[in-house]
Write a protein that binds this DNA or RNA. Structure first.
Lengths: 134, 134
DNA sequence: TGCGATTTGAGAATCATTCTCAATTACGAT
DNA sequence: ATCGTAATTGAGAATGATTCTCAAATCGCA
């Protein structure tokens, strides 16, 4: 039998459970500091660095996905509830997109590449801003 | 006849021409500091802040598009040469995608939203990393 | 229960990006 | 060609998100 090199296993801590629960119960994708702020409401404190480490681990494991809506911070949501976003270039407001056009596209990929996910943001101008700009 | 409020007009400076030329002549999307570094090779120096301001102006005008491949920095490319990217989660390597699946998707948009563009990154594992990981 | 590897917390460090402000420059009008 | 004025620039400071450091606390298998 072969001996495997000791692989770093991910551990379950109450901090990681709390981070995951915050993401699960959120209405939409959250930034790291938003997650951190929500967790301060609990009785036990969690460090911001721990939140970042938990997010990194969850993303690596494929449980959580990250999105960039355009302000400078990364937001996180459950991969199982994947959705893309529509972002207004004027006011910065964003909202989930109902349909996801990407999975259908499997053409044009180099052979041997195994797709696990994607990140899509659609840009434009929302009705409100177009109205205000007339 | 109506009088329009004085709108800030964008001016053409040799700095902005240089930034745009750097993007035009690049083989793929560039980060701000990569553009800045390339421009240092010329005889006249350009400040990094100026590069950022030029990029901001070009993006606002729709001449340049930005992408986020996942390391912490934003990259820029000509909007007229739009393409999405394929990113390896293991090694971080990225390459342009041939086909763009997004324009076809017009369903699920809220009425009144005018789409001007999008940003898409497809994630997964490249052939080389899958090979090395066996 | 005991031990070793992983995780945590707090703050320092890093890194990309934005801001400040005085000096310079573009460009429509004269 | 020259003016006047608002836009732009450069250098460095400031900001803000994210990552790193390291000793102490924990997790989970033996």
């Amino acid at each position: 039998m072969t001996t495997r090199p000791p692989v770093a296993r991910s551990r379950t801590t109450w901090q990681r459970r709390a981070v995951l629960r915050a993401i699960e119960t959120a209405p939409c994708h959250l930034a790291a500091d938003e997650i951190h702020r929500r967790l301060q409401r609990g009785r036990r404190r969690i460090g911001l660095a721990t939140v970042y480490r938990a997010l990194e681990a969850f993303v690596r494991e494929g449980v959580v996905e990250s999105v960039h809506i355009g302000d400078g911070r990364v937001r996180y949501g459950l991969a199982a509830r994947h959705h893309d976003h529509l972002v207004c270039l004027t006011c910065g407001a964003w909202e989930p997109l109902e349909e996801c056009p990407v999975p259908a596209a499997s053409g044009g990929l180099p052979s041997g590449f195994a797709v696990t996910g994607h990140r899509l943001e659609v840009f434009g101008y929302c009705a409100r801003c177009r109205e205000a700009d007339r």
